[in-house]
Nucleic acid binder design. Structure first.
Lengths: 211, 211
DNA sequence: GAGGGGGTGTACCGTACGGTACTGTACTGG
DNA sequence: CCAGTACAGTACCGTACGGTACACCCCCTC
């Protein structure tokens, strides 16, 4: 039963070629060569180039957010907010700046015009889910008087983009060879948390859970 | 002397086709048809498809930041910080969410792998320049005791991404048919300013220009 | 009114790519 | 030992695209 293994080899090779050349620029012959497979086999498994592309991108989407779910559960239950939030932020920035993630992000953006449903699916499974989970955590924290949050989803957006925008946008334009040192990423995370808490944290003198 | 006019017609048509189909997907025949020009003329003017593409993108870069320069000069000299900052933010978010800008942004990101110099040039001429100008304004404001800013470039990044990230990222993934109502955009701008000032504004009881 | 620069239209060339057909082969189960 | 299946390899088809060549045209200038 080597079927699954061949299929995986094809998908891995195809992902690499699609990431490098884009959907139109990728050649099925090259994918076959890179996979060490026959073009015939590819078409047996996936039917059309489009289907292969969609399968691959969708495949990369499953479980994007699971990495954060436990961190966010911990966050919602945290008593010591600032260090926990800082940990979440560092978590975020490290995970989201991994080349494996950013290259897919670039590819999806690039092909969002040709595959609108893929763009939507990516946004839904990625930022959408993360924002929702983060907003839920913020609401719990607000309920416990540890955060002053009026619009939790907005706050989740602010947090996420504060943490990740600088490195992510740089890579979007300047390619994958841009890398960041850990200290740099953590500086982004920490300063984002500082800004976030200045706006949404409770300060001495505030009423416990007021808006 | 219709030379310049034909050239412009070609560039306009080519931009449209490139934006719709990407670099590889765009067909020179189609560009010629859309421009009402002959393919021969295109190749007389630009030589190769790559050169045409680069010219067009570079052409869209000139003067990106000029829109903001006067607003930022006004900001640096402002006495009443919050409303001025809010005006700048609304300015930003309206300008950057114009389809004409976002589609080019998507295109550049999409082709950053194939044209690395274009990605760099875009980042330099766009976000780079804006961040630099904004940072200069923040430093002046900090010098006048109206802002508490340690790292002005970081603060400029925070401001910019706080203001624009939500709509910009949505469009990146979900295509150009996503539009925003003015009220929505201004809500993003205002809430971004609120967060920014909570972190970087001076509060009663702060020493005049302290860190 | 001859000449030339800049343009259009079209036919064309070479190549390359998505997708298919065909052959041969290794493995697997009965 | 046989049948079936999944695969590699390769040749192939049709089409399409980047780029060029050629014929013709308009307009301006001397």
């Amino acid at each position: 039963m080597a079927q699954a293994e061949v299929r995986r080899r094809i998908m891995d090779a195809a992902l690499e070629v699609f990431l490098r050349d884009g959907y139109v620029g990728a050649k099925t012959d090259e994918i076959a060569a890179a996979a060490g497979a026959s073009k015939q086999t590819i078409y047996k498994h996936f039917g059309r180039k489009e289907a292969l592309f969609e399968q691959i991108v969708l495949d990369r989407l499953t479980g994007i957010d699971e990495i954060f779910q436990d961190a966010l559960r911990k966050l919602a239950a945290a008593d010591d907010l600032e260090p926990t939030l800082r940990e979440v932020a560092r978590n975020f920035v490290h995970a989201l700046t991994r080349p494996a993630h950013l290259r897919v992000r670039r590819l999806v953006i690039a092909e969002a015009g040709r595959f609108p449903n893929l763009g939507n699916a990516y946004f839904e499974a990625g930022p959408g889910r993360v924002h929702a989970a983060l907003a839920a955590a913020f609401e719990q924290l607000a309920g416990r008087g540890l955060l002053r949050v009026e619009d939790a989803v907005l706050a989740a957006n602010h947090f996420t983009w504060l943490v990740t925008s600088i490195p992510v946008n740089k890579v979007m334009f300047c390619g994958d060879e841009v890398t960041f040192r850990d200290a740099e990423l953590e500086h982004y995370a920490d300063s984002a948390v500082r800004v976030f808490l200045a706006a949404y944290g409770v300060r001495v003198g505030d009423q416990p859970a007021g808006q």
